[in-house]
Simulated scan of single mutants.
Amino acid sequence: MLWEDRDVRFDISPQQMKMRSGERVIDRLESIEDTKGNSGDRGRLIITNLRLLWHSLNMPRVSLSVGFNCIINITTKTVNSKLRGLTEALYILTKANNTRFEFIFTNLVPGTPRLFTSVIGVYKAYNSSKMYRELKLRGAFIQNKQLRILPQEQIFSRVNGVWNLSSDQGNLGTFIITNVRLVWFANMNELFNISLPYLQIASVKVRESKFGMALVVESSEASGGYVLGFRIDPVEKLHEVHKEISALYSVYSQCPVFGVEFILQDKPPTDGNQLDLPDMDEAEIDESVHDTADVLAAYLADGLHHDREPVFSSELGLAIEKLKEGYTLQTLWEVIPS
């Protein structure tokens, strides 16, 4: 499951800091302060094509992972940094799991605007490349029965005579199979279409339907959990198309194409996947401790989180806000997690 661009996580493990398949480092900035949650702590900000990673240089286990898909707004803000004083900082508002968090990153080296240009530029590139990652229905990606090709996309096959079985009578259309997605559109109305990236495909099967043997494509839960049926005659051709889609899906799974392209003008040479994390003592890493209440509270956007319903607590003998999954009254009272 792809979580890197769709989640906000705190104090993540070294394993979660590593680049997943298809993820690459676009820029790395030294001497960045997490002014909101770790003011006075010098750290490193790593910008990938899916997320922002920050970790403290003194204590690498103090870290953040902020997915680009969670970001609501990016702007600048004047803040009072412990290490630099009154200065302009990068302000980021996010939403994850129905909770809003805010992050403030301050560049501790004067006269280096790369913090703003890199983060904002990569975020814009991420937003403009959603077709690589999101299912799209009735989109404007077909023109004169031709697919509008994405920058990193290659067409492998065009299959005519494909019936979409979403209605009782079916709709005759065309498949276009590329290296990043499966596209179908109706011959009579090209705006009746679907673009399904391999990233959002849960399974591809051939099975019996009330229309005979059909190609059944299931989309992921994140994209709506659609079950799409297509009939292709003859059956031999159906199996050929199924084999081709399955092969391309397998290749894509090994090395996904996320479509986020951004080139820095004055970027120092770096290894695209090397994070250069400081050594972490085994004793310092506690995989069982995740988002503790005090860490979450530091990043909550004031007044923007949603209150949960009240429930009766038999331990306290009064009504309290319903605890989040994984929390107990004992853990909320602990200053140092046991």
Score class of each variant (00 low, 15 high):
Tyr327Val: 11
Asn187Gly: 04
Gly40Lys: 09
Trp163Ser: 11
Lys210Glu: 13
Arg133Lys: 08
Ser63Leu: 05
Val251Ala: 15
Arg308Gln: 04
Asp233His: 12
Asn187Gln: 07
Pro110Leu: 12
Gly326Tyr: 01
Glu284Thr: 04
Ser31Thr: 01
Lys18Tyr: 03
Gln16Phe: 02
Gly317Ala: 01
Arg28Leu: 15
Leu277Phe: 13
Tyr226Met: 14
Asp294Ser: 14
Ala222Tyr: 06
Leu64Thr: 07
Ser56Phe: 03
Trp163Asp: 01
Glu33Ala: 13
Ser314Thr: 03
Val25Asn: 07
Phe10Ala: 05
Ser167Val: 01
Glu190Met: 02
Gln265Asp: 11
Gln254Arg: 10
Ser81Thr: 08
Ser223Tyr: 06
Leu196Gly: 14
Leu296Met: 10
Asn58Gln: 14
Val251Phe: 04
Glu315Tyr: 10
Asn58Leu: 11
Ile263Asn: 04
Ile46His: 12
Pro269Phe: 05
Leu296Gly: 14
Asp291Pro: 00
Ile285Asn: 00
Lys18Phe: 08
Met131Val: 11
Gly37Arg: 00
Val204Glu: 01
Asp302Phe: 02
Glu190Ile: 08
Leu199Arg: 07
Glu282Ala: 11
Ile285Phe: 10
Leu108Trp: 06
Asn98Leu: 14
Asn98Gln: 13
Leu83Met: 13
Arg44Met: 15
Ser209Lys: 04
Ala89Gln: 06
Leu50Tyr: 07
Arg138Gln: 12
Phe192Glu: 02
Lys82Pro: 02
Cys70Ile: 01
Glu284Gly: 01
Arg138Lys: 14
Ser129His: 09
Val66Ala: 09
Pro14Asp: 05
Ser195Asn: 10
Phe116His: 12
Asp281Thr: 02
Cys255Trp: 00
Gly224Asn: 13
Phe262Ile: 00
Leu115Thr: 05
Ser65Glu: 10
His242Glu: 09
Pro14Thr: 00
Glu284Phe: 04
Ala186Gly: 00
Asn80Met: 12
Lys82Phe: 11
Tyr299Cys: 06
Arg28Cys: 13
Glu190Arg: 00
Leu323Asp: 02
Asn164Gly: 08
Ile320Trp: 04
Ile320Glu: 07
Thr75Phe: 07
Ile201Ser: 06
Leu150Met: 15
Arg6Gln: 10
Asn80His: 12
Leu182Ala: 07
Thr292Ala: 03
Ile32Asp: 03
Glu287Thr: 06
Arg6Lys: 13
Ile120Trp: 13
Ser314Phe: 01
Ser314His: 09
Lys322Thr: 03
Tyr132Thr: 13
Glu334Arg: 10
Gly225Ser: 06
Arg181Ile: 12
Leu199Asn: 04
Trp184Glu: 05
Phe258Leu: 15
Asp307Gly: 11
Asp276Gly: 15
Arg181Trp: 05
Asp168Ile: 04
Glu287Cys: 01
Thr174Val: 05
Ser13Arg: 04
Leu52Asn: 10
Ile92Thr: 00
Ala214Phe: 02
Asn273Ile: 12
Glu325Ser: 11
Arg138Met: 14
Leu147Arg: 03
Glu190Val: 02
Gln265Pro: 08
Thr331Ser: 15
Pro256Met: 08
Ser157Pro: 00
His239Asp: 05
Leu332Ala: 06
Ser288Ile: 10
Leu53Gln: 14
Ile194Val: 14
Met17Cys: 13
Val227Met: 07
Ala301Gly: 09
Thr117Lys: 09
Thr292Tyr: 00
Gly317Lys: 02
Ser166Tyr: 03
Ser314Cys: 06
Arg158Asp: 00
Leu300Ala: 13
Gln154Leu: 08
Asn164Glu: 00
Thr178Glu: 03
Asn160Val: 03
